[in-house]
């Protein structure tokens, strides 16, 4: 489902004398449907950079990333947008939403964007918010004023609303208590059982051991480290 081939990424800092910083070189791996792969490596090794390239958020300077048949490194913006709508989900560490939009709509939005009926989308959103223990009295409020942990859970609910065939998870269990962590892990297991190909970053070692089928150390792709 996810094929990464000989990926390379540099940052060119034009406003700092044009310094070129190579951050990824020769990265390659595959993730099959129903499989969860954990990216490991110390902070700064490039785990998040790899995830962002997979999502089309960072440009690659070389190589290919094929997800659901589309090479993201060469795709048009509208092709990437369609892929993100239908195929590729991403749970980032931080929630970024339009102020004033109620939590329930933030969670239902990915389904509405796919053209799902409003009642179906809202039912799914209610189900996820309940499972993630966001109190119902908060559903009509914008999540911008929520605590960090609550925002994280809204973000997860939104990320799991549509059953994406490919899913990127950036520290999905960070800043969660034991009960909510358990819920998130079972959501990940359900997604795997449903055939999703998952790439994740988990600093939580127990969580990683439980959901990940394989580990990939990104240090192998970091120029100067390997």
């Amino acid at each position: 489902m996810i094929h990464v081939e000989n990926l390379a990424k540099n940052f060119t800092l034009h406003n700092q004398g044009g310094a070129v910083i190579p951050v990824i070189a020769g990265a390659g791996f595959e993730v099959a449907p129903g499989e969860c792969v954990a990216l490991t490596g110390e902070s700064g090794a490039g785990k998040s950079t790899v995830m962002r390239i997979l999502y089309g958020n960072y440009l690659a300077q070389g190589g290919a990333v094929r997800i659901g048949g589309l090479d993201i490194t060469r795709a048009e913006p509208r092709e990437i947008l369609a892929l993100r709508r239908e195929t590729l989900g991403y749970v980032s560490q931080f929630l970024r939403v339009v102020p004033r939009v109620p939590t329930i709509e933030v969670v239902a939005e990915p389904l509405l964007a796919l053209g799902q009926r409003e009642d179906v989308a809202l039912a799914r959103a209610r189900d996820l918010l309940t499972r993630l223990r966001i109190p119902e009295r908060l559903w009509a409020l914008s999540p911008t004023t929520f605590s960090g942990g609550e925002q994280q859970r809204v973000n997860i609910a939104r990320g799991f609303a549509h059953r994406y065939p490919a899913l990127l998870l950036d520290e999905p269990t960070a800043s969660l208590d034991a009960t909510n962590r358990e819920t998130v892990l079972s959501l990940i297991e359900e997604a795997k059982a449903g055939g999703a190909a998952i790439v994740g970053i988990f600093h939580d070692l127990e969580a990683r051991a439980r959901v990940a089928d394989r580990e990939i150390d990104v240090a192998a792709f970091t120029p100067g480290l390997s």
């Binding site: 940052f11 060119t12 034009h14 958020n57 960072y58 440009l59 913006p77 947008l81």
Partner: peptide, 12 residues
């Protein structure tokens, strides 16, 4: 480019 890509990984 894609809005988030241009803002998060600007090239020029």
């Amino acid at each position: 480019g894609l809005t988030d890509q241009v803002l998060d990984d600007p090239q020029a």
